[in-house]
Amino acid sequence: MSTLEPAGPAAREIALVWWVMLIGSGVVLALVCGLFLYAFKNRTGLAGVPERVWLIGGGLAFPIVVLIALLAWALPSGQSMLPRDDGAFRVEAEAFQWGWRFGYPEGGETLTVLHIPAGEPVDVAITTADVIHAFWVPQLAGKIDAIPGQTNVLRLFAEEPGLYRGQCAEFCGIGHAGMDFAVQAHEADDYEAALARVLEEAGQ
């Protein structure tokens, strides 16, 4: 369930963004708090720094440079995570109070466990039968909401076969905490057979 153990490219990129920003934030925090305390320790140390340097250098230039760098990284990065018209495998997820129903292109549906092929992009088309929910599998990608009256699409990519835990992230009533689900990624070659087995077991 951890975003810090990514198993797909989107989650991996976001985890990297986090670690970089954590280190950067630590440096900035240490700088500001260090300056604050230093002002009491050594009253003459930086007294000669002109006011304009503080305001323009520290207040304007410093954050602006850092923020431009961050945005220049994050905005294209976010765009690269979006679903594209590249014929990716597409499944459907319908949220309801309180559970998940997953539908497949060849027909059939499963409850609570979504079966996808590993090693290729999968677009999940997300809708809701009642209130707002959110589809979130932290190890694979970020989350997206299930909103009444619209279909939102989230791109998943599981690098390896495995079972990935997911959870509804948007508060949806008293059953919210129990609205977890799982994504089972199968070897791409074995996927159709595996899905057929699952559907058969479910009596479909």
Binding site: L75, P76, Q79, L82, P83, R84
Partner: peptide
């Protein structure tokens, strides 16, 4: 500025 370099209607 994003209008200059990001895809317009994606997502």
């Amino acid at each position: 500025a994003p209008v200059l370099f990001l895809a317009a209607c994606a997502g």
